[in-house]
């Protein structure tokens, strides 16, 4: 099963809590050096996947490997190669930031001290302050720095920017780009589509514990509809009869529609009409995500 180019791999990974299937036969593969986004609404199974990868929970079926190491049987060896950032930092209130970073660094056994100090600067963290005096955003900064300073081969991030302000989010994105440039693998679970879109090479979408989409954004867009908006000067043609066109919405002289496959037929119709404005764009990640779940965000 192990492949030297694979950072993370799951085979039929399943987790049930009583009658509830939290994760259903997940087959996932992340190559070394990839930055992969992992999307899904609350309860889709993202955190369950991560807890199984980290060995915090035991799978009901299937298995997971990180760098060829079994996540359940070799957790210590696996953890030497990775660092994890949770969406909610549970730290020791009586320790200072510096003490927390020192403890977590010693436990991990691998710290780039210069980079740690640089991260403290970048994230504008006061390490002399006790954890109990930190805001939520500062808690998050501590565990982000603790993970990044280890320079691990794999970063597993579960809603890592929860509580960070926009400036710190930018600092985080910069760190992820640096990690990718250094050849580190990043597995990013997030609700923030813009963050995933900006950072990730590949995206997986989880629905009801099942992986329903996995690929690069380009691949996913290719399979999805193109959005076209046209404004006409004069009579508006009937686009609903054009092959491949759907979801036609007319608002006076403005028509909005979606096109799947070739746009050749649509272009021919538009060319015959008097078009004053024409905008076409690929779907955003948010639109791709909502297409999987429906506009209301519920699994469809």
């Amino acid at each position: 099963m192990s492949d030297p180019d694979t950072a993370l791999r799951t085979d039929g990974l399943t987790k049930r809590f009583g009658d509830v299937v939290a994760l259903d036969h997940l087959d996932l593969e992340v190559a070394r050096g990839d930055v992969v986004g992992y999307l899904g609404p609350n309860g889709a199974g993202k955190t369950t996947t991560i807890r199984l990868l980290l060995g915090l929970s035991r799978p009901t079926e299937g298995r997971a490997e990180i760098f060829g190491l079994d996540c359940q049987r070799q957790p210590v060896e696996t953890h030497r190669r990775l660092a994890f950032v949770a969406g909610e930092a549970n730290l020791w209130p009586s320790l200072t930031g510096a003490e927390t970073l020192a403890l977590l660094g010693r436990v991990h056994g691998q710290v780039d001290v210069a980079y740690r100090d640089e991260l403290i600067e970048r994230f504008d963290l006061d390490p002399t302050k006790k954890v109990r005096a930190y805001s939520k955003g500062n808690h998050q900064k501590v565990i982000l720095i603790a993970a990044l300073m280890a320079r691990p081969d794999l970063l597993i991030l579960d809603e890592p920017t929860s509580g960070l302000d926009p400036l710190m989010e930018q600092a985080f994105r910069h760190c992820v780009h640096e990690a990718r440039d250094r050849g580190q693998t990043v597995f990013l679970s997030s609700h923030m589509m813009s963050e995933v879109e900006a950072l990730c090479d590949r995206v997986g979408i989880l629905r009801d514990g099942k992986l329903v989409e996995m690929g690069t954004l380009a691949e996913m867009r290719h399979l999805s509809a193109l959005t076209v908006e046209a404004r006409f000067d004069g009579q508006v043609p009937d686009l609903s009869v054009v092959p491949g066109v759907s979801a036609v919405q007319a608002d006076g002289s403005l028509v909005r529609c979606q096109v799947r496959g070739s746009v050749k037929s649509l272009v021919k119709v538009l060319a015959a009409a008097r078009v004053t404005e024409l905008v076409s764009r690929e779907p955003s990640l948010e639109e791709l995500f909502l297409a999987q779940y429906g506009e209301d965000g519920h699994a469809g």
């Binding site: 980290l54 060995g55 210590v76 060896e77 953890h79 660092a83 949770a86 549970n90 436990v107 056994g109």
Partner: peptide, 12 residues
């Protein structure tokens, strides 16, 4: 949840 900080690092 403070135990998680150790369990996601090389501590059995």
């Amino acid at each position: 949840g403070t135990l998680d900080n150790f369990m996601v690092r090389p501590v059995s």
